[in-house]
Nucleic acid binder design. Structure first.
Lengths: 152, 152
DNA sequence: GTACAAGTTAAAGTCGACTTGAGGTCAAGA
DNA sequence: TCTTGACCTCAAGTCGACTTTAACTTGTAC
């Protein structure tokens, strides 16, 4: 298959395929002249990548998990910790969803007078909703970078 | 209160406060020399902003909702549609979480041989997990921008 | 009265995941 | 033979939400 065929079959734009190849997430079996030639199993691999993204993994994490080629070595511990993270996110979102739902039908003259809304506001104020561990990580990475820049 | 005080009380860094002011999300009551002076109600406003962010609103959306000053005019329809969106996200995440959880304990020799995992893979392949309406919107905005650039 | 910590601005940088653009190569069809 | 049009590479741009940096200005404590 050439890149256009893969794009069509998978719904993934060619630019993204090239990008993924550059990142080492996928690879072509060879070239016909300049043109990449892909094996059919690329489709499953792309699905795997999409799944990883949907689960909240970064491309780098996915690259680690599925390796440069062959069958993925997915660590069960990693899966569980991602599931846990997802679960925490879900709980927060449920809180938010219910809060929003209530606020939408609440009879209080202004949202500010609704106790439910105010409780939510309180949670938001102490950072109890928002920012999960992934975000904190990239936050940390950022400051580490800053630190390293400083120490040079 | 000066900016440091607000930062301390709210946990929001001064740089973010200046940024929010620039964006019109908050405003200081005046200046002492160069220095911004904030009224105490800034704290509630910041909580409101944090809440909006946690609910998945962009800063621009929040700006629209809470207006340049005074009490927010939050549209109930908007709240409901955000709640619905959140709900769809939650459903997908529950699917993912359960899938991950299962994969983590699945006895199949490789994840690829596990029907549950493969079902998930199938969903990912057709884009059924991933990308919610918000992402699609910014996607659309991006292409609109590209279009406009082209048409200039 | 002077040093200095803490404020100020405007511009540039960061992060991840891509997309876009410019300029080049090449096989196939008219 | 010549022209497309699909592919190629590499660099630069995009998006949102901030942070960082550089170059000032000030209120305040000594």
């Amino acid at each position: 298959m050439d890149i256009a065929e893969v794009a069509k079959r998978s719904g993934v734009p060619a630019s993204k395929l090239r990008f993924y190849e550059e990142k080492g997430l996928i690879s072509s079996v060879g070239r016909q002249g300049l043109r990449r030639v892909f094996n059919a199993d690329i489709l499953e691999r792309l699905a795997l990548i999409a799944l990883g993204r949907a689960a909240g993994f970064s491309l780098d994490e996915i690259a680690q998990m599925i390796g440069p080629k062959g069958k993925p070595n997915i660590d069960r511990e990693l899966l569980e910790s991602k599931a846990d993270e997802l679960d925490r996110t879900i709980q927060k979102q449920i809180t938010m969803r219910d809060g929003l739902r209530h606020a939408a039908v609440c009879s209080a003259p202004s949202h500010m007078e609704c106790p439910t809304f105010r409780r939510l506001l309180g949670l938001a104020a102490i950072g109890e909703l928002g920012s999960n561990s992934t975000e904190k990580l990239s936050q940390k990475r950022r400051s580490n970078n800053a630190l390293q820049r400083k120490n040079r």
